[in-house]
Design a protein around this nucleic acid. Sequence first.
DNA 1: ATTCTTGCAAACGGTTTGCACATAC
DNA 2: GTATGTGCAAACCGTTTGCAAGAAT
Lengths: 163, 163
Amino acid sequence: MSVEHTAVHKTRGKEIMEGKNDKDFISTLRDHGLQVTYQRLAIYQTLYSSREHPSAEVVYQQVKKRFAMISLGTVYKTLEKFYDVGLIEKVGPITEVARYDANTGPHHHMVCLQCHSIIDIDCSVDEPKISVAGYDGFHVLRQQVVLHGYCPKCKAAFINSGS
Amino acid sequence: MSVEHTAVHKTRGKEIMEGKNDKDFISTLRDHGLQVTYQRLAIYQTLYSSREHPSAEVVYQQVKKRFAMISLGTVYKTLEKFYDVGLIEKVGPITEVARYDANTGPHHHMVCLQCHSIIDIDCSVDEPKISVAGYDGFHVLRQQVVLHGYCPKCKAAFINSGS
DNA sequence: ATTCTTGCAAACGGTTTGCACATAC
DNA sequence: GTATGTGCAAACCGTTTGCAAGAAT
């Protein structure tokens, strides 16, 4: 694959992108063990140049401005692949589906990535002081701390299966 | 509406439920400004007696054992209503859809309930020490702190519209 | 040449919605 | 009697999947 188009984006992208050219982006992809395609480059650049935490749909709309032929399915697959290899972060559904809890006292949750069980954590243990100097403009109604990992049962299963 | 069935559930529910009878449940619903129906009572009791953070579907399956005729739609509507009035908690999608972020450095997020914008928070400010004594069996891979509230822009809009 | 990726369209699954009927108050 | 909740089924919408054609290595 050859590189012809420029890496320069619009608006806020420009500030962030400055100093990072196509070659850098390509290297980044390769460093993560990814094959390089125009689509991936465009998707990564779009995401990299945004602070909006865009959804797959939004990334798709952005990328389409440069690659009219790209498909939404590719964007989904690509973002998920990026996420898998640790190239990008994902803010989103912490559980596959909504889960409810009659315990309304202050507490947080541990979610098992394997069996999807949710374990309550006494809030007392953390009480993260996120009164956050500098973010005062934001009116915080509630905060949620979620730990992702493996519950004792699933951890044991991994060890036994020879992790 | 009259109360005939017993409040006793199975397994772990029993321990939790003990000391809370139908009248208590009814009062709880009323206290939250809710009309009382068999369905709501059953849904609330089911949730109250569980530590599994069940999904709507699971609640539905449970409740159906007592009320064969209940519909899944009702469970959805009811749980959401419970959540609205603060009777129950919801662990689930913190954003409507998955959102991505090329910033992989340690940081957390503020999500605006109104405009759905997401603002990064420097991790340095909180660093919640959730090494959590007593939960050692759980192997934590990553933790996510999410604040819900209103961003400066939306907060201002509320004030102007006469909150 | 082989393997991985793309595009398209259909399928999926959780959730929401509309409406007629039933129930709570 | 009036407002609210229920049941059912269809619609929604974000996401995933299968597969044939295309591109990367």
